[in-house]
Design a protein around this nucleic acid. Sequence first.
DNA 1: CCGTATATATCTACACTGTAGATCATGCCG
DNA 2: CGGCATGATCTACAGTGTAGATATATACGG
Lengths: 213, 213
Amino acid sequence: MPEQGVENGRRREILAAALALAEEKGLAALSMRAMAARVGVTPMALYPHVGSKDALLDGLVDLLLAQLLPAARSGGGWEDRLRATARAVRGLARRHPETFRLLLDRASVTPDAVRLVDGLYAALLEAGVPPQRVPRLERLLSTAVLGFAEGEVSGRFSPSPDRWDRGRSLGEDAPAHRELAEVLARPADWDAEFEANLDDLLHVIRRYVPAVG
Amino acid sequence: MPEQGVENGRRREILAAALALAEEKGLAALSMRAMAARVGVTPMALYPHVGSKDALLDGLVDLLLAQLLPAARSGGGWEDRLRATARAVRGLARRHPETFRLLLDRASVTPDAVRLVDGLYAALLEAGVPPQRVPRLERLLSTAVLGFAEGEVSGRFSPSPDRWDRGRSLGEDAPAHRELAEVLARPADWDAEFEANLDDLLHVIRRYVPAVG
DNA sequence: CCGTATATATCTACACTGTAGATCATGCCG
DNA sequence: CGGCATGATCTACAGTGTAGATATATACGG
């Protein structure tokens, strides 16, 4: 058997095919048979390289996580790094809308995941956040950023038909929707919304930085 | 065929069985055949009542959403109502850890979902948040609360082995983990963390309330 | 009472899924 | 040459959702 954990070329090829196939046909259509056909091989030939489908999905998570590390290690102060990482997460979601959900589904404690979290920890510490508050704020930040990115690309934020119509159809049962009819009728600007969320989250973080001087 | 959309008794019975079965054996084990066996019927007998497995899962979402409405409509001021709703979400996640993820997966625009969002809109308006900021803040709040609750019950926040050990094993690559070793070694208090997150989110909301007087 | 409609449950079958197990081909090393 | 590891293949099994045709039971108008 080949060194399954090692990053030999064949394994990379399979993972790349899996990623491409998932983004093209949807995550649900990512079957071992479909991947095998894409690589030009029989289904069982994949197993020595990826172990199992579950392990293959973990491999995809690694592929995605690796794309986030550069931002977490970019230059500049702590705030620039946090913003860059958050934007990288959103960019990743938009580049890989189908596979992005794997980051949320699979509790990933791979080395790269730890490295990523470590970068966030370091930024928060550098910001002056007291150590005992750092883990919670990292989880809050990560949850909000990952959740927003997933919500945006999965369509959870913009159901069809529009919530505005739904609010109208509910009539008396949705008074606040009626009051917000004008605002809800405007198309959402996800870029602006993401940046505003980021501002709010950084504001929360700064709350916990003791004043100096 | 029975009135599939109507809430006749048989449909309720099936949905209840599905919910129970999913929580007992896991969401992945929720198959039409397993449910049918539980109800004491053949698989195909379910279809007139639930339409399809997809529609059945939507039905489960409705079942869960219905448990959140009372909190959103509870008495008290806007802040009490937001806190009550958030706590209800977390309680729901803890009561139904397996099926809770359906709320995030399935972009639900059911009547109850709209009613729930409407309650949040109303609370934000009552708080004095300018209308054009209400939808974004609702999405931020919902994303953070749903995401935290899901993260807590899915184990995404407490991987095993502990991140602390992982940080150690990575050694030089995770300096911030080392710096936080003491804090990370302490067991997390999710109750306290949730309340702290809630405080932070409400603080963000109050930022957008123009000063009066 | 019968006949008919309506609702509910059943059975079979199809096209999928992940993957265990056995087999076969190829190339490398001593 | 033998021996062995590597890689791919083929078959088969247990499971999935569900289309389609068939049966059964219940209720109602005559």
